[in-house]
Amino acid sequence: MKAKHGFIGWFQAQWTGNPLFSTTLALAVMVILQTLALGTDFDSFGDWWTTFYRNWIIVLRNNATVGIVSLGMAFVIISGGIDLAVGSTFVAAGALFLLLLDGGGWLAAIGLTGWPAFAAAALLCVVAGALLGGVNGVLVANGGIPPFIVTLGTMKIFRSVTQDFMQRGHNPSFPQEFADFSCLTFGGQMVMPIVYWLVVAGLLWVLSRRTVFGSHVVAVGSNERAAKLAGIQVRSVKRRVYILAGALVSFASVIQICRIGSMDYSNAGSGYEMDAIAAVIVGGTRMSGGRGSIVGTMLGVLIIGVMNNLLNLMGVPPFLREAFKGVVVVAAVLLQRKEATS
């Protein structure tokens, strides 16, 4: 292939050289289609603009929870693992959060009320999620069991134990005065979940690109043997990756509960593991570890989110939407294959 100049040359170079190029391109196409799908039935440009940005806020807000879960999943997959237990951790941590915060709940029993109680509950919830992640991490790193099997097991355990425990006592309810954590509005829009998502993404980007831990995660996922022989504490890296994923999932759980005001222990978070894996893969992360990025994962979440929104605007029946999601995942990997072969 002769090197061409101008736009075509630039395009070729980006296509083969930049791992995020095809992902960005796919997102751009989705966004254009989504914008067209809004229609032209508006009185003025201002009218259109309002519809446009409101629609975008809905897209981002609806994907904030699964977006945060996907960021944790990205770290796990880059390290060469997989975490199927995110949905169950979501429920288990959420249940603990409600038990702590309920009007007659555990924190009230020790006299803690108001926003301090909320802060304590959220913190304990995240710690509990990290501990559940730690269980996965210890079994994977020290037990030497394949991560797929470990997290398949804990996925069943976490949810079933939570369900059983929660149907025994009284069902804790969420004190609505704390809903502001997620529902505080700015300019008439509920944007807090989006803000949390972006802040978490920023912190994780720094963690992946500017810290020793981030490089160690890539090393372990890319060549575990070489990482071990370079003196990297491979087991500790693996444990910490699952702990991080667990903590992020439970933070997402807090955001979700504050937004909806309740939790359905049978269904909440179910399918999160697959949605998160799909977003991570669409974002250009290699399933076997080593290659992947936070930015790519954000793009992956957005592609799937924008596509859902587009299908919604076009009136595609809800059952069919999952099929489109499937097509996007497979197509994304097909698109990325040329980078591996060239």
Partner: peptide, 19 residues
């Protein structure tokens, strides 16, 4: 098999033991 981390850069491979 035992030394190269193929997804890391020249710099990070060269400093992997001392990060």
């Amino acid at each position: 098999e035992n030394a190269i981390v193929p997804d890391l850069s020249v710099l990070f491979n060269g400093t992997l033991a001392t990060l």
